[in-house]
C-alpha cells in the first residue's frame, strides 16, 4: 500500500529520502544491542507475514502494514526492521524498487517513530484491555494516516502533475486506516490479556 515504485519520484525527493533514512538507520543501529537482534528480527518477520494477510474492508481489501504497532514494540529498531522487510519485498515479490528504498522506509518509519513517541508511554502505563484497544486503534490509525500523508507529500514534491492524483490517492488510505485501527487495537488488547509482560518489554530491556 505504501510502496512507491521506481521511476515515479524526482531525484531530489529520492535523495532526501535516502539521506534521512540513512541517518535514522545509523542512529537506530547504534542503539540496537546485539542482544536485541533476535527480538527485532522476529518482529520484522512478523510484520512481513502480517503484510500478507488480506483484510476485507467493504468492497475492497487491504494488506496490513502495522507500522504504528511496530514503533510501539520496537522503538528506534523499527527503522532497520522496516528497511529489511521492504528489501525482502522488493527482491522476492517485486514491490517497490531499489532507488525508492530510502523514501519508502522513511514513509513507514517516521510514523512508527512518532507513534512510539506519542503513545508508548500511555500504552506501557495502561493495564485495561479495553483502554488498550482504543490506544492501539489510535496508534494504528495515526500510523497509517501519517504514512498516507507522507506518501502523497513525496508525490506532490516530485512534480505538480502528481498533485491531483495525490489528493485522490489519500482517499484510498481510508479503508486501510480503519482496518489498521481495528486490528492494532485488537492485537494490543489480546496481548494485554494473554501475555501482558510482552507489551512492556522495552521497560525491562534497555532502549
Amino acid at each position: 500500500m505504501a510502496h512507491i515504485p521506481d521511476g515515479v519520484l524526482s531525484a531530489p525527493v529520492l535523495t532526501t529520502g535516502a539521506v534521512l533514512s540513512a541517518g535514522a538507520l545509523v542512529y537506530a543501529l547504534r542503539r540496537l544491542d546485539y542482544d536485541r537482534i533476535p527480538q527485532a528480527a522476529m518482529l520484522s518477520a512478523l510484520f512481513f507475514v502480517a503484510s500478507l494477510v488480506n483484510v476485507p474492508v467493504g468492497a475492497s481489501s487491504v494488506h496490513l502494514i502495522l507500522n504504528g504497532l511496530m514503533g510501539i514494540l520496537l522503538g528506534w529498531a523499527a527503522v532497520p526492521a522496516l528497511l529489511v522487510a521492504l528489501l525482502l519485498q522488493a527482491i522476492f515479490f517485486g514491490y517497490g524498487g531499489l532507488a525508492v528504498l530510502g523514501i519508502n522506509t522513511l514513509n513507514l518509519a517516521l510514523p512508527a517513530l512518532l507513534c512510539a513517541a506519542l503513545f508508548r508511554g500511555a500504552i506501557h502505563r495502561c493495564h485495561s484491555p479495553r483502554q488498550l484497544f482504543w490506544l492501539g486503534a489510535l496508534t494504528g490509525f495515526s500510523g497509517i494516516a501519517l504514512t498516507g500523508v507522507l506518501v502523497c507529500l513525496a508525490l506532490a514534491l516530485s512534480g505538480p502533475e502528481y498533485i491531483p492524483a495525490a489528493k485522490v490517492a489519500l482517499l484510498t488510505y481510508v479503508p486501510l486506516m480503519l482496518a489498521e485501527a481495528a486490528i492494532t487495537g485488537t492485537i494490543l488488547g489480546f496481548v494485554q490479556r494473554v501475555a501482558p509482560e510482552q507489551l512492556r518489554l522495552q521497560q525491562v530491556t534497555r532502549d
Binding site: V53, V55, A182, I183, G189, V191, Q198
Partner: peptide, 11 residues
C-alpha cells in the same frame, strides 16, 4: 479474529 491471530503470532 484476525487481530487475535496476529496477537497470537506476536506472543
Amino acid at each position: 479474529s484476525l487481530g487475535w491471530l496476529l496477537g497470537m503470532l506476536l506472543v
